[in-house]
Structures are given as C-alpha cells and as structure tokens.
C-alpha cells in the first residue's frame, strides 16, 4: 500500500501540561480517529495506529515545539490534517505545523538527541550559570529506582544562556539525559514557582526536527 508519513509540530499548554504521556498518546489516537484521517494501522493481531511521539514531555512542563510522526494510507493536504485535528483537540493542544517526511527519513524518536527549554525563574541566576558553564565537572545526586548516585551533568548541557529571568538551555536526551528540573535543583535548590517550557526537540547538529 502507498503510505505517506508526516511530522506534525504541536503545542501542549495550560491544563494540558498535566496530562501524562500515555494519556496524551491516547488522546492523539482518538482525535486522529475523530478527524477521520486515513491513519495507517500496524499489521498483526492487535493493529495499532502508526503514531510515534518524538519525546515524552514531563508532567507540568509546557511544550511549544513538540513533534509526532504519523503515517497515513494516502496523501492529504497538510492544512487538512492540521485543521482536522485542531477541530477535535481540547484547549491547550494544537497542531502548529506539518511536513511530509522524505522516504529515507527516520522516525522522530530514533533521531532525537537533545531538547531546548525555556525556564522562567524569579531570581537572577546569571552568576550560577556562568559558573556552571566554566566548570568541567558538575556533580549532582540523581535519584532513580535503583537508588541515588552522583552524576556529572556538565557534558549533558549543550547550551545555556540567561537573560531577564529567563534561562534558555539545550539538554541531552536519550540514554544519558538531563531533566530540566534536576538542573534547576542544582542551580536553585528548593526554589518554587519555576515555569518550564520545552521549546524545541533537536536532532544531530542540534537542528530542529
């Protein structure tokens, strides 16, 4: 069958920040159905829609540059995909772009290496950022199911700039990843009222998906 793959760019804002990844996946699948798009299904006993999210977004974090790949059974106008889905999404989720994938392009989750965040704080942290970037080793305690262990997070920070209570940073994802909350816990221990937005998801060369 002739398949067409699309990469959709979307926002996840407001209340939708508190919908977890699995529920977000289910919501997309439902809205793809409601929009009556000719979504492809996997073969096998339990056919699944061919939908691949680039990178799960943590609970409470806003997203302005999120990505998901979908596969359709036939070609459709990109604007029809966007309008069709947006007619069904609840307030807070919106498709803001779509492009057709080249036949040889790999799906989003396979090529992600980093994510860009914008973090709003209520204190000047310029000196801390300066110090962070000038250190070769930054050790923090990472808690996981298997216990606590020290990790050097410095190599996981690709970029960090600070201006007007806004920290813009690019952090590694994948097997060795850095959650923005862990970075902030290091920079401003115990601080509250930090507002996180993931603004982009990046592939090799730190290029947007």
């Amino acid at each position: 069958m002739y398949m067409e793959r699309y990469r959709l760019k979307f926002e996840k804002l407001g209340n939708m920040r508190f919908i977890g990844h699995l529920d977000t996946v289910a919501l997309f699948q439902r809205c793809l159905k409601l929009a009556q798009l000719p979504i492809s299904y996997s073969k096998g006993y339990h056919p699944r829609q061919e939908v691949a999210f680039a990178l799960p977004l943590g609970l409470g974090i806003a997203g302005t540059g999120e990505f998901v790949d979908i596969q359709l059974d036939r070609e459709i106008l990109q604007s029809d995909i966007i309008d069709g889905l947006n007619a069904h999404f609840p307030i807070g989720i919106k498709i803001i772009g779509a492009r057709q994938l080249e036949p040889n392009e790999r799906i989003a989750p396979r090529i992600v290496i980093a994510a860009e965040y914008e973090i709003i704080v209520h204190k000047n942290i310029e000196p801390q950022i300066y110090e962070l970037l000038n250190n070769e080793e930054v050790i923090v305690i990472k808690k996981s199911k298997s216990g606590e262990k020290p990790v050097n997070i410095r190599p996981l920070i690709f970029e960090a700039t600070y201006e007007n209570n806004k920290l813009r940073t690019v952090l590694a994802t994948g097997e060795r990843n850095l959650k923005p909350q862990l970075l902030m816990e290091y920079l401003m221990p115990g601080a509250e009222n930090i507002y996180y937005t993931r603004t982009d998801i990046l592939k090799e060369g730190l290029k947007s998906l």
């Binding site: 209340n15 939708m16 508190f18 919908i19 529920d23 439902r30 609970l59 409470g60 069904h88 609840p90 307030i91 807070g92």
Partner: peptide, 15 residues
C-alpha cells in the same frame, strides 16, 4: 497540581 495523584481529575476541558 503536581503534588496530587491524577491532576486531570480537577482540570476540566475533556472532549
């Protein structure tokens, strides 16, 4: 919202 189990119980905005 982050401190409670299942914050979506209190959000509204369902389909």
């Amino acid at each position: 919202l982050l401190s409670v189990e299942k914050p979506s119980r209190y959000l509204g905005g369902e389909l």
